[in-house]
Nucleic acid binder design. Structure first.
Lengths: 301, 301
DNA sequence: TCCATTCTCTGACTCTAGTCAGAGAATGGT
DNA sequence: ACCATTCTCTGACTAGAGTCAGAGAATGGA
């Protein structure tokens, strides 16, 4: 990360906060405080728990409560206890609220239009393309990888999605019972670990690492949600697992994969993995890879 | 401007205001109200007129005054009347103020770093490039073209800069006395017009149009400040002047230029101008261009 | 059944941001 | 010398954003 890059990012921040940020608030908050507008914006059609709203917007509970009271008074939302747990309250848009949200969407369109309007068509095309790129990469930068227990709901959700996808993509289908499944203990310290990738707190991918005694470290169950692909997440998982295996003093990383997963195969190749003869009897595997890695001492913190 | 473009811009706005906007304020405003921080940020080392600060930030004069009082009380700035015009007051950073600004810069670097940190080098390079593009195009979109009197200070400043630049770039040097200079009256309605381009209220370019009776319309003194180049401003000037000449019922636009101004020559070619034999005796001209345009009725408003 | 915990809400604040009207000093043109 | 204009500042506001402490209802577990 060199100084010129930092510099460009700074210039970008300046232009963009000046232009987009200010306008955004201005457009959105025309006849409504932006606190209320932001809240309205976050309430989806099916309703949201107050708790979740607070988390997403990072606001004080008292403040959110007050904002909700204001929206309720305007007849834009209803707030009701959730039947299963009456402490938690769920916010829903009324028809009026939905209409108001619609209006915010319209404003958002206007803002977008005002950014493009002064440009000629060629410039517009280039601006939109560059924005898409920035959007994609900033989104990628917002993804966090957390080690979790394989039994954690997020982990379980990822694994279920993973299996469903394999079932669809393998021409033979996929039956977990026939596969060499590591039991959860193998993907939990000290025998391994399991990472979940999250975007805005929502799970969007997973990857497991087996660290068997007396055998090479092995990557298992790497999956990225369709909506989070093309963000370099697979590569990031590989790098992270490699670093962690290295910290454990391992010098070899391996994995197996199915021929149907061609993007993954490309990823392994371009990440320094070499194809090797089968090292296990996984019935769904067609390719086996390994990569020499540099073992490192565990870091201080 | 199609719906897909609008949509992408909206997605961008959301990601960016969520990520950059919020962080920006957060980083910048750690121990100081962001109003003050923004102001501090805008005061350059040589000092700024209060008026200019107000314009750049788009704030109420009373508000700015109050903010300045606060910064002054903290010993970060001094405010003194400008000797030539004691109504205007100039703000200057004290050493403490410069240190504080330094700190803001550091914060800004941290923010930039935090955006890049989770990415791999290839992604960083792409992000930075895309940001530069967005930055450039949004900046371009912020430039406004205003018709002004050729005696207006902004126009005069542009013309002086223009002559200085010609002096440097022509291998013969440039002496305005030898050139075919239109007098100011020729670039002022009804005999012509003069446009100034402004970015954040600051002049960044100019272009004049002669509309002589019984002769083709002629573009004169088109210049773009070095800091505002590569924003498509030259092309925009040409388009604007063409439209205005058309409104006046003209069907031919012409101009002359010096061989040293190769980017301009490229621009003329790519904007539909054809090189023609000399139509005047301008001693500094090597190339003469003209373009047929479609005369139009003057618009209602 | 009791008790710690979770979740939301209310009241009572503080601080920023920003607006508006008008005063007062300088200036430029006549 | 006068007057309209320009520029900055002050006073008097409004309203939005956000914090903090604590009350009260539900819940889950011992």
């Amino acid at each position: 990360m060199d100084a010129a890059q930092i510099d460009q990012v700074r210039r970008f921040n300046r232009t963009v906060t000046a232009r987009v940020g200010v306008l955004h608030d201005h457009y959105l908050g025309r006849e409504r405080p932006i606190g209320e507008a932001r809240l309205l914006w976050e309430i989806s059609a099916e309703g949201q728990d107050v708790r979740r709203l607070r988390e997403r917007l990072g606001l004080d509970s008292g403040y959110v409560s007050r904002l909700l009271r204001a929206l309720e008074a305007d007849g834009l939302v209803t707030v009701e206890p959730r039947p299963q747990d009456r402490r938690v309250r769920t916010v829903r848009l009324t028809p009026d609220g939905a209409a108001e949200r619609e209006l915010l969407d319209l404003r958002s369109d206007e803002l977008a239009g005002s950014l493009l309007a002064p440009l000629n068509p060629a410039q517009r095309t280039r601006l939109v393309a560059a924005m898409a790129e920035v959007d994609r990469l900033l989104t990628a930068a917002m993804v966090v990888l957390d080690p979790v227990d394989p039994d954690h709901p997020d982990a379980q959700w990822c694994l279920r999605s993973y299996f469903t996808e394999l079932q669809e993509r393998f021409d033979t289908g996929f039956d977990p019972a026939l596969s060499l499944l590591p039991d959860a203990g193998e993907l939990r310290p000290p025998r391994g670990l399991f990472l979940v990738a999250r975007l805005h707190g929502e799970a969007v991918g997973c990857a497991g690492l087996k660290l068997p005694a007396g055998a090479p470290a092995e990557i298992k169950r790497m999956w990225v949600a369709p909506g989070a692909r093309r963000l370099g997440l697979g590569r990031r998982f590989l790098a992270e697992l490699e670093a962690r295996a290295a910290e454990e003093g391992r010098d070899l990383l391996r994995l197996d994969t199915n021929k149907a997963l061609s993007p993954a195969i490309g990823l392994y190749h371009s990440s320094g993995f070499q194809e090797v003869p089968p090292f296990n009897d996984e019935p769904y595997a067609h390719h086996w890879f390994e990569k020499r890695i540099a073992p490192a001492a565990a870091p201080g913190a």
